[in-house]
Amino acid sequence: MKDGVLLSVENLHVRFDTYAGQVHAVNGMTFDVRRGEIFGLVGESGCGKSVTGLAIVGMVPHPGRITAGRILFDGEDLLSKDEEEMQHIRGRRIAMIFQDPSAALNPVFTVGNQITRIIRHHMNLSRRDAYERALSVFEAVGLPDPVRIYRSYPHELSGGMQQRVMIAMALSSGAELLIADEPTTALDVTIQAQILDLLAHLRETQHLSILLITHNLGVVAEICDRVGVAYAGNIVEMGATEVVLNQMKHPYTEGLIAALPSPTRRGQPLQSIEGSVPDGLHLPSGCTFHPRCPHVMDRCRDHTPPRVQFSTPYGDHVVSCHLYAREEAR
């Protein structure tokens, strides 16, 4: 285990047994989240990034199951833990927030009731102390008038406030790792920026490490230290955000970035990547990106691409692509 790594996902495989057959949602996902960093896991919908997030907290939805791999959290293998041990980790050490905060808050309980329930469960505090803690966490996430928020029902709050409440609930028991699954996708652009600022701020003040799952490269560019680009349940490129976004090597990453609308290309047709995301039922052989790759070679069709590692001033830069296989030796 490398120094400073909080979470390490190694060769994770998740399968869903459906009537149509085995759906390969996650296929060898490998990445680290270091202490105090914001790691972005970016990819299109269906690339297995959300399932990976759920797998880390041991909540892969039915009928999915983890078929291979290791998930090391602070040196402990989470996959070898039973349900009771996982309950001690969930909420207490690893917390998670979701895309649509209005759906992730229970509509028939006040926000205060929901957060104190979590605090009291994890921290064994009296009603009074839990209330005080709830108010201070509300303040820490920048909610104005915590007492009023405490008494509110979710539907009485705006989307941005709801997401702040979710973040408050997630961090109320002192979690070290926050898995944020598309935390800003359902929000207005101005609110998105506020929530991202808040996450960046909390990373500093609460000694938090964040696994940020998103499809939005803009979000990644904004706050992530490092980023992993996921395609068909695997990481195809990973490295420091500056490197991956500016000196990308994988054809998929190139395609993603070329597809971003840009003011400098005004009037030109929008770029897109040919074809569509493979479904997990019929994964392409070899490199899963080969049917859509502009640089496809013969060996891409039936050979799994190697993980090629480059050294940069910003740290390691890993690419899974046959194009760079010969450069491996460098």
């Binding site: 001690h88 969930r90 909420g91 979701f98 229970n106 469960h121």
Partner: peptide, 21 residues
């Protein structure tokens, strides 16, 4: 619903999730 997943991810015991939340 998402809020049930959220409650489970928050580490609340299944008894509370089912019979209260």
């Amino acid at each position: 619903q998402k809020y049930i997943l959220a409650a489970r991810v928050a580490g609340l015991p299944e008894r509370t999730v089912l019979f209260v939340l």
